[in-house]
Structure formats: structure tokens, C-alpha cells
Design a protein around this nucleic acid. Structure first.
Length: 484
RNA sequence: GGCUCGUUGGUCAAGAGGCUAAGACGUCGCCCUCUCACGGCGAAAACACCGGUUCGAUUCCGAUACGAGCUACCA
């Protein structure tokens, strides 16, 4: 068997949709797993839809996700160019389209948009609207075509599909699919601007570039028989087809921009790690035999087997992605976590204190980086809070007990200069034992006084360590005032 | 409307004729604990429906229902 070659062939129309990213990832995993090549091609045959800067986004996404291509626009290995608009200039598509015309597998069509539009309203004898082109121009004589061409009439080239019989193609995920040829539209191969359609360029390029496994989204499943006929018309070997199940939003519709997290770039902006997104997306429609969930790219490559892909659409579960991102954050070594978290911390905490300690408090408590803000805002300033917060059933505390405990402990906290976590903790421990109190009975009021929050990352002593002696005492004195 | 595909807990997802139908997220409870989180333990929660094949169907086949995709000179 020949070497596996897969490709990723996006159109530069904006951000990288997660469905697209997953398709790229699967194509990449399949070929890497088999030790094959990965080709990157740009399909920019629709100039109207092209978006400025979109090509750069694609390059950046590929780099950020760790999907490495062996051949591409900047890595020509002899079957380029790898950008379709450049291939148009070489005349590749027109040349192949004409071959098809000669074989009778395609024909020139001079129908106007108006005629095409009126066709759509047409109802046939059984009462059904005609959904396929009526082959009007397929019946033109050679002379008529020549004359039209000579007169400079605008034209397209259409595929000439049979109207009887059936076509069967094989998909590695969905099995054999048979459709009746009457359903096959004579789709346009070359547009009137001389550019090929996706349908045609894709087939020609995949063949010319030696693609062995065509990995694409499920939305192409129903047009695959037409592509198959193209391969056959040329007499080319048909590649393996691998159609990936759709990714949907929580309403089970194709994931769209409206969801707010339909693209890789959206997710990065929302504070997700590229590795977590890749890992998560890999699990949408596939799972490894050993059921491992957290996997590096190397592990994905080793374990990926497209025969175990599922057929049904998968809902994009934002919640689970957040969990997974949290797992990745916890696994990060502290230094790189600190580096990524620092801007988020500085955003909130302006005072002079040990931001590293804050970072370490927060690492096991966030799922995405923007979570940090709400967790640590009290370091900057104690929020307004109700003294009811001092009441805690399990700790057996309330405003009165808290007040007296705070008054009792204040002198000792003023006395000591050891504001390390350990130092403070043993000081408080000694105090509680001496007075016969329970731990929570004194620690709850202190934590509340010092933070003004129901819950905080870290306990009373950890917070005081970061705030330092002066600020801690300030806060406790204010709390005593508030409670009095 | 037509064509194509799909349907295991709320979600992802194992299982491919005989299982008490895995695991994960989420939810809830308990433990740990200076609150929260982490970590540990546990619970609730699923084979769409109807026929057929079979000694036996979640698993195979056929209808039904529901869902989705496609039906462009977009990809």
C-alpha cells in the first residue's frame, strides 16, 4: 500500500471553526499515526468570501495547536502551488475541465441566471419541483457551442451526470452509500469567472497531490457521489473517504458563530489553553480504546484509530471543556502558570504584595484564566459585606462571638512580627488551645474580617501572610469597628 | 418537499447477539479541611418506538417517530 497522505484545505474566510479544527486534527492524526504526510492547501476559489488576514489566522492556528504540515504554500515538495488561486493562473482546472468535455463527461453551459432562477419554480408532471438542472445546454451542438464561445458569451462548465441508474461510493465511517443518478445535479465545475468551484478543484487537487484519505465534514456526505463520478470520469483511483460527524451546539444545530465559542480564536480569547482545546475537540466523535481522556498530541497520534469514530453528531459541551482546561491548568508547572496568570492578577491586585503566592493559591481553583479576577479581588480591597457573614452554624460563630474573638486576638497579632503562614498558624493554634476554642471558632471570624468574603482561595493565615502585618491589622480593626 | 445520514443517562462516550449496560463532564451526598478549591468515596441518571429474525436482542433486518445535513456560478 502506498504512503498515506491527508490534507487540510480550508478557505480563508475568517476564524477557525472548531469543526474545521477537528477535521484538520483528525486528518493530521490519521496520517501521523500511519507515518504519512500532511498537506496544507488553501482553497481560495471564491474571491467574494475571502477575508483579509484570514490566511494568517490559519497559519497561526496550525502553529498554536501543534498541527505540523509537511507540504504547503511555504513548503513546496513538487506538487504545488498549494494555493488554488495560483493554480488557476497555471490553468490547471480549465485544462482538466476541458478533458472532461472531450470525454462527454462535462459540457459548456450558457444559461443566464434568469433562466436558472425560473427553472427553480418549475414543477414536473408528478407535482414535484425540479431540483436539478435540466441539461438544457448539454444538448447544444458542437457548432452552437463554438459560435457562442467565439461570440464571447459567458459560460460555465457543468458535470454531465447520467439520469438513470445508481452510483455507490464507500465511506470508511458510514459504509456504502448508494444514490440514484437522477438525484445528481449537473454541478458547476468551472464558474463564469474562470475559477473552479470547490467541488471540482477539490477533486483535481486531491488527485494531483496524491491524497489517499479524504477527511472532511459530514456536510459533504450527500454530495460525495458526484465527486466519485468525477474520479471515475477521469479514470482516477478513488481515495478513502472519512466523513466526520457534525459538531453541534446545545440545541443540536450545527455550531455557529451565535454560540460565542464556535472558533478556536474565540476559545483562546476566553482563556482556554490551546492544548486543552485540541484534546477536547479530539474527543468529539472519537474515544481511545483505553478510555484515557487527557492526552498529549503524541498520545493522540499513538492512539488515534479512525475506525472507532462515531457516526452521530456531537454536542459541544462547554462545561466539559472548562473542566478539561482546569485539568491542564493544574498540570502546568508553576512557573509557566505564573507567567500566564500574572496579567490577570495584576489586573485586579495593584497593591504591593507577593503575587506569586496569590498565583499558587489560585492554580487549583480556576478552570479558565478569567476566573482569577473574582477569586482575588478582596486582596485589593475588602468588599462591602453584611455582618451576617460572621454567623456560621458549623463554626458556632455569630457577630457577637466574632467580635470578642477578634478583640482577644488583636493584641497578639500586633505583638508578633512573624507573618508567615506557619508562624501565624501556630500562633492562632496556641491561642485556640489556650482558650479551649475550636479551630473554626477563631479562624472563621479572622478570615471573614480579613477578606470580607464568604469563601476565599486559601485560609485566614495564608491571606494574612500575603497582606502583611499592617494591612491585616487594619482590616481586623475595621472589622471590630463594624461589629461594635 | 426531495435525497442522505443519525438515535445508549442532561452531555461526551464504551459495548457489536447472552454483561448487575463501562468510564468522563455536570448534579447530589459523605470524608478530608483554617472557608472555598484540590483530593478520596458514594448516589441518582440511558439502550427512541413498533414489528421481524433468533433459544435469546441495546447489538442483525424492516417500518414509525424524532433530529440533523445537503438540495448555490459557498466551501
Amino acid at each position: 500500500m502506498s504512503k498515506v497522505r491527508t490534507r487540510f484545505a480550508p478557505s480563508p474566510t475568517g476564524r477557525m471553526h472548531v469543526g474545521n479544527l477537528r477535521t484538520a486534527l483528525y486528518a493530521y492524526l490519521i496520517t501521523r499515526h500511519a507515518g504519512g504526510d500532511f498537506i496544507f492547501r488553501i482553497e481560495d476559489t471564491d474571491q467574494k468570501r475571502e477575508v483579509e488576514g484570514a490566511v494568517d489566522i490559519i497559519y497561526k492556528t496550525l502553529a498554536d495547536t501543534g498541527i505540523e504540515y509537511d507540504e504547503g504554500p511555504d513548503k513546496d515538495k513538487g506538487v504545488g502551488p498549494y494555493v488554488q488561486s495560483e493554480r488557476v493562473k497555471c490553468g490547471i482546472y480549465m485544462e482538466y475541465a476541458k478533458k472532461l468535455v472531450e470525454k462527454g463527461e462535462a459540457y459548456y453551459c450558457f444559461c443566464t441566471p434568469e433562466r436558472l432562477a425560473s427553472l427553480k419554480q418549475t414543477v414536473d408532471e408528478s407535482g414535484k419541483t425540479i431540483s436539478v438542472y435540466d441539461k438544457h445546454c448539454a444538448n447544444l451542438s458542437k457548432e452552437e457551442v463554438e459560435a457562442n464561445l467565439k461570440a464571447g458569451m459567458p459560460f460555465v462548465i457543468r458535470q454531465n451526470n447520467p439520469t438513470e441508474g445508481t452510483t455507490t461510493f464507500h465511506d470508511d465511517i458510514y459504509g456504502d452509500i448508494t444514490v440514484s443518478n437522477a438525484e445528481l445535479d449537473d454541478m458547476i465545475l468551472i464558474k463564469s469567472d474562470g475559477f473552479p468551484t470547490y467541488n471540482f478543484a477539490n477533486v483535481v487537487d486531491d488527485h494531483l497531490m496524491g491524497i489517499t484519505h479524504v477527511v472532511r465534514g459530514n456536510e459533504y456526505l450527500s454530495s460525495s457521489p458526484k465527486y466519485n463520478r468525477l474520479y471515475e470520469a477521469f479514470g482516477w483511483e478513488v481515495p478513502e473517504y472519512i466523513h466526520c460527524p457534525l459538531i453541534t451546539d446545545e440545541t443540536h444545530k450545527k455550531l455557529s458563530k451565535r454560540s460565542g465559542h464556535s472558533s478556536f480564536e474565540d476559545l483562546i480569547e476566553q482563556g482556554f489553553l490551546a492544548e486543552a482545546v485540541v484534546n477536547f475537540v479530539a474527543l468529539l466523535g472519537w474515544s481511545p480504546e483505553d478510555n484515557q481522556e487527557i492526552m498529549s498530541m503524541e498520545e493522540l497520534i499513538a492512539k488515534f484509530d479512525y475506525h472507532h469514530m462515531s457516526k452521530s453528531p456531537a454536542v459541544f459541551d462547554y462545561n466539559k471543556l472548562k473542566w478539561m482546561n482546569g485539568e491542564y491548568i493544574k498540570k502546568m508547572d508553576f512557573d509557566s502558570f505564573y507567567e500566564k496568570a500574572l496579567p490577570y492578577i495584576k489586573e485586579v491586585v495593584k497593591r504591593d504584595c507577593d503575587l506569586k503566592k496569590i498565583a499558587s493559591l489560585v492554580q487549583s481553583r480556576i478552570e479558565i484564566f478569567p476566573d482569577i479576577a473574582d477569586l482575588i479581588d478582596f486582596f485589593e480591597e475588602v468588599p462591602e459585606y453584611d455582618i451576617a457573614m460572621y454567623t456560621h452554624k458549623k463554626m458556632k460563630t455569630n457577630a457577637e462571638t466574632s467580635l470578642s474573638v477578634l478583640k482577644e486576638i488583636l493584641p497578639r497579632l500586633e505583638e508578633t512580627d512573624d507573618y508567615s503562614n506557619d508562624g501565624l498558624y501556630s500562633l492562632l493554634k496556641a491561642f485556640t488551645e489556650e482558650k479551649g476554642y475550636k479551630n473554626g471558632y477563631v479562624l472563621w471570624p479572622i478570615r471573614t474580617a480579613v477578606s470580607g468574603k464568604q469563601m476565599t482561595p486559601g485560609g485566614a493565615t495564608e491571606i494574612m501572610e500575603i497582606l502583611g502585618k499592617e494591612e491585616s491589622l487594619n482590616r481586623i480593626r475595621k472589622a471590630i469597628e463594624k461589629l461594635s
